[in-house]
Computed example of a mutant assay.
Amino acid sequence: MPARPSENRASFSAKLPLSRHQVDRDYLAREREDLFPALLGDESTRILPVSKGRALFRTDTSLQLLPPSAIPPQAELVYLGLSLADDADEPVGTPILAALLTDEQASEVATDEQWGNLRMFATGLSDRDAGLATEALAIANWHASHRFSPRTGRPLRSVKGGWVRVDTDDGHEIFPRTDPAIIVGVTDADDRLLLGSNALWEKNRYSLLAGFVEPGESLEQAVEREIFEESGVRVTDAEYLGSQPWPFPASLMVGFRARVDDVDPGTLEPDGAEIIDLRWFTREELAAEAGDTVILPGRSSIARAIIEDWYGSEIAD
């Protein structure tokens, strides 16, 4: 029987692939008006190209960072910060930019096979590369969806190292936004775990219940509301576990566990719209079915980490 879940939250956070980082974001440098000319004029600067939600990979376990001369001159840039990894090819302190490339620019830089999906390769990346890819893709998604002012419809210009977009007519600044979402490992009195199947998935794919935090709502309130809305189950004692950025396109997944309310447990019933099936699993049942009749979330997700935290070890699939 697997060991019971550790109470060490630091240990849990270490299991989250996209929460790793070895980059100093060096935010004060974003104020420099000569930041990009200075960095592009230094061939020791390294640039991570991103395009269409993908990053440039050298191998399955490492990103491909390029010198400034390898990047199309009209590419939109974002300053990611300074490398802190002493085991990387680049020395500690190396400045790193992201280049947000159009389709045409991406084809000039690399073949299609060299572009990789972070969800697929996150677990094999180093701490630095996982952090770089997550940061770069998240900010690239924000730029793609904020080309125009939500107030006036006028075009916005990227400033301050790519971390602000400004309306050049009235000076109004738009800053990056992240959408918080809760994701919850719900257990009952018998310590069984509740998993649900989403209407958009294969019928045998199961994961934890999750949902976005609404305006004016605390994280704990969102836990109680979302679980009830999707499953009919009422929960209590929401306990924070850890969080992981999820740049697909702009979420922060905030992990909790909670238990069914002993006084008012509700009635287990999927909402029928988003969730079409719900199941309680013992550890033995999940281990027996994982990878066979039940498909679990990928190892890059916080859902997988919470499930295995409850289980007590990794689950083979």
Rank of each mutant, 00 (worst) to 15 (best):
E76T: 14
L35D: 12
D24C: 10
G41C: 03
R46G: 06
A29W: 08
Q74F: 00
R20I: 06
L40D: 03
K52G: 14
A55M: 09
T45M: 05
E43G: 01
F36V: 04
E76P: 03
L35N: 12
E33H: 11
T59V: 01
L39G: 00
T59I: 00
A70D: 12
A29R: 15
A38Q: 13
I71G: 01
R25Q: 12
R32K: 12
Q74H: 07
L65G: 09
I71L: 06
I47W: 08
G53R: 01
L56M: 07
R25H: 08
L40S: 00
K52Y: 10
L65H: 10
Q64E: 15
A29H: 09
R46A: 11
L35H: 12
V23Y: 01
V50N: 07
S62N: 07
L63W: 04
A55V: 15
I71R: 01
A29M: 12
P49T: 05
P73M: 03
R20S: 11
D24P: 04
R25T: 13
L65C: 08
R58Q: 06
A55S: 14
S69H: 11
E76A: 15
L48W: 00
S62E: 15
D42S: 08
V50M: 07
D24N: 15
K52I: 03
Y27L: 15
A70T: 01
G41H: 05
F36M: 08
D42N: 15
A70L: 01
Q74S: 15
R54E: 02
R25K: 08
E33Q: 12
L28H: 13
L48T: 01
G41W: 04
Y27H: 10
L40K: 04
R30Y: 08
E43Q: 14
S51N: 13
D60W: 11
T61P: 00
R58F: 02
G41V: 10
S62D: 08
H21F: 06
P73G: 06
L66A: 06
T61D: 15
P68M: 12
Q64M: 14
P49Y: 03
Y27V: 13
D24M: 04
Q22C: 10
L63F: 07
P49S: 12
L40P: 00
Q22T: 07
S69F: 11
F36T: 06
E43Y: 06
P72C: 02
A75F: 01
D24I: 05
L66M: 12
A38H: 02
D60H: 13
L35Q: 11
Q22M: 13
S69W: 09
L56D: 02
P73W: 05
G53F: 00
